[in-house]
C-alpha cells in the first residue's frame, strides 16, 4: 500500500505547522483546566476527610468552577481546530490521493439508507453519522462515512426501568455504484453460530422472509459468510467465482469481518472499526505523521476497493 508522504507536500506541511501552534495552545489550556478540576476534587476530598465539610466545599468548588470556565472558553477554538483539521488536513490528503475526493464532516449516510441497505437485521434506535467522503474512480462513483448505530433494551428493575444501549454497528459504511445491472437483493453476512443455525433452519425447514440462503461453491467463502438473496441466479451473477475471491481478500485485509449487500444497483460494505477516524489530535503532535498515516491508510483502503473488486470494469452493459 502506498503511503502518503508529508515530505513531498509543502502546502500540507505549512498547514500542519500552523495548526500545531493552535493545538499546543488548546492542549496547554485543557491541561490547565484538568489541573484545576483535579486539584479542586483533591482539596474537597481532603477537607471532607478532615471533617471540614463547609470549607471543603468552598475551597474545592472554586478551582472546579474555574476549570470548567477554562474548558468552556476554549470550546469554540477547539471546535474550529477540529473542523480545520478535517477540512484542511484530511481534505488536502484526499485531494493528494485523487482530485475527485471530498470530505464533509457534517454529513454522513442517512439512517434510512442504513436500514435500506439491509446490512444488519436490527433497526437502530440511536444513530450517529459523520465525515462523508465522496469520490469517483473513473466511471465508478462511491462514498463512505463513519456510522454508529445502536439499539436499546429496556429491562424492568426494582427501581423502575433500566435502558441499555448496544452496538449494531460502529465503523465505516462504504457504498459504490455496482458494475452490473440487477433487480433483486443479495446480502452477504459474516457466518457465526446463530446465523448458521438460522440459515440451516430457513434452508431446510421454513424461511421467514422472501430471501433464500444461497449456497455458493467457493468453500472458503461459504465458511466465512452466509449469503441470502431474492433470486438464486442473480446472486450468483453478482457473486462470480472471481468476485468471491476478491471479497475474501478484502475481508482478510480488514480487522473484523465485513458485511455486504447489493441493492438497487449499489453495493454496500460495512467495515467494523473500533476507533474514530479523521479526528484531530489534542495531546499528540500534528507533526508526527503516524496518526495522519492511519487516517490516510483507512481512506486509501476505501479508495482501493473499487480497484480491488474490479468495479470499474464496465463490460456488462452498465455504464
Amino acid at each position: 500500500m502506498q503511503f502518503f508522504s508529508l515530505e513531498g507536500n509543502l502546502a500540507l506541511q505549512n498547514v500542519l505547522s500552523r495548526m500545531e501552534v493552535e493545538r499546543q495552545k488548546i492542549a496547554s489550556t485543557q491541561k490547565k483546566g484538568y489541573f484545576f478540576i483535579g486539584g479542586g476534587i483533591i482539596l474537597a476530598i481532603t477537607g471532607i476527610l478532615m471533617g471540614l465539610i463547609g470549607l471543603a466545599i468552598v475551597v474545592g468548588l472554586i478551582p472546579i468552577i474555574y476549570g470548567g470556565v477554562v474548558f468552556y472558553k476554549i470550546g469554540d477554538e477547539l471546535q474550529a481546530y477540529k473542523e480545520a483539521y478535517k477540512r484542511d488536513v484530511i481534505g488536502e490528503a484526499l485531494r493528494f490521493l485523487d482530485a475527485s475526493l471530498t470530505i464533509d464532516p457534517y454529513r454522513g449516510i442517512l439512517a434510512q439508507e442504513f436500514i435500506y441497505s439491509q446490512l444488519f437485521s436490527t433497526d437502530p434506535d440511536r444513530y450517529k453519522t459523520e465525515d462523508l467522503v465522496c469520490g469517483k474512480a473513473d466511471k465508478t462513483g462511491f462514498y463512505f462515512a463513519e456510522v454508529h448505530a445502536e439499539y436499546k433494551t429496556v429491562t424492568q428493575t426494582k427501581n423502575g426501568t433500566r435502558t441499555e444501549w448496544h452496538d449494531i454497528f460502529k465503523g465505516i459504511i462504504f457504498v459504490a455504484d455496482f458494475n452490473k445491472n440487477f433487480n433483486g437483493v443479495t446480502i452477504v453476512r459474516p457466518k457465526d453460530f446463530g446465523s448458521a443455525i438460522g440459515a440451516w433452519f430457513s434452508k431446510n425447514l421454513f424461511s421467514f422472509n422472501n430471501k433464500d440462503v444461497i449456497k455458493l461453491e467457493n468453500i472458503d467463502f461459504d465458511k466465512a459468510f452466509i449469503t441470502y438473496g431474492t433470486d438464486q441466479v442473480e446472486s450468483r451473477y453478482l457473486l462470480t467465482p472471481a468476485m468471491m475471491e476478491r471479497i475474501l481478500k478484502l475481508n482478510s485485509n480488514s480487522k473484523y469481518s465485513i458485511s455486504l449487500s447489493f441493492i438497487e444497483s449499489r453495493m454496500y460494505i460495512a467495515f467494523p472499526l473500533n476507533r474514530n477516524y479523521f479526528e484531530a489530535p489534542i495531546f499528540k503532535s500534528l507533526l508526527n505523521p503516524e496518526l495522519l498515516n492511519e487516517d490516510i491508510t483507512a481512506i486509501k483502503f476505501m479508495y482501493d476497493i473499487v480497484k480491488e473488486l474490479d468495479l470499474d470494469t464496465r463490460i456488462w452493459g452498465k455504464n
Partner: peptide
C-alpha cells in the same frame, strides 16, 4: 459495442444459471 456488452453479460448470466443448477 452494445451487442458485445450484452453478449458478455449473457455469458456471465448463463454461467450463474449453470452454477445455480449445479447447486440445486
Amino acid at each position: 459495442i452494445n451487442l458485445q456488452t450484452t453478449w458478455t453479460e449473457s455469458e456471465e448470466q448463463i454461467a450463474a444459471a449453470r452454477r445455480t443448477y449445479n447447486a440445486a
